[in-house]
Design a protein around this nucleic acid. Sequence first.
DNA 1: CACGCGTGGGT
DNA 2: TACCCAAGCGT
Length: 366
Amino acid sequence: MALHEQTRKAASEDSASRLLAWYDAHHRELPWRITPRAAAGGARPDPYRIWLSEVMLQQTTVEAVKSYFRAFVGKWPDVKALAAAPTEDVMKAWAGLGYYSRARNLKACADLVASQGGRFPDNEGGLRELPGIGAYTAAAIAAIAFDRPAAVVDGNVERVITRLYSIATPLSEAKPEIRALVERLVPRTRPGDLAQAMMDLGATICTPKRPRCMLCPVREDCSAILSGDPERFPVRLPRADKPLRRGAAFVAERADGALLLRKRPDKGLLGGMTEVPTTGWTARIDGATTADAAPFPADWRRTGQIAHVFTHFALELDVFHAQVKSDAPEGHFWSLAHDISGEALPTVMKKVIEAAIPGATKARPK
DNA sequence: CACGCGTGGGT
DNA sequence: TACCCAAGCGT
């Protein structure tokens, strides 16, 4: 081994040691983690809980995940229980968390694991084959739940690494280099804690804006600090701007307060979720034409407008409301008032319903 | 491989 | 306010 490689390796080991020491001193209590005491006693986290939390945490903040995680493990304490649940119930429990294909893949994954004895694969390759588990999640589960020396690379780790080594290459192109650097950091012992340490560091110290470098355990190793502007890492390519789409939504209310709903196709935007009838979302607002697009004729009254921002477009919907007295049209169903809060309604649809009938989506007693 | 895919909080 | 972005995956 060349001398400079030895030096680099030693530097990596120093950084890893500092990160682990910091992790021990700043342990964050999270619903899916075991206590440091239990870990010291040799206990391992439950792979089911690690898997569930990691899927929920994909592109989603810790705070948003906590209550959903608790609800899920309360309803379905293990993978067999989740496999036994109807997909519809899983979609309802996921409603509001976003990226709904995750919920469908979660259920498919649970079915697969349960059919193979109820145990998750204990290695990265086996995990990677399961639906909804990509490179990051496979590595995270392997390292955290099974103590495998996997290179866990998420957005936090990308930020920490590009700063630590002042990588000015745009992110998409820099990923292989980042991965190689992380592989060099992975310690022989406690690979899962190292992964969590780097993610915790990215979430609390090495933040996208105004990083708290003075509190950082690896500030002495960090190249970006020397530049005086660690915020400029990672370098990202400019994003395309968001188009605006428009449409109209129709909230039909029966005399007993039931609302007319329908299920969206399983694939695509809000796949498998429930919605109120709407026009297409590119439709122009042509005044009188919008109410004509309702699922059936009624005395539609425009009650307001809602705005919602998705990942790749913004949406404005004119909201119409009518009292109706009829059977549900083909493909639609009535949902009683006390059931609305339990439906698989994405946030945008709750906004629509609230705009027509304030309070309608709040939980109410039977 | 670039894009489609939600939502809420931070600045 | 208007961005920015978060413990990514599937196609």
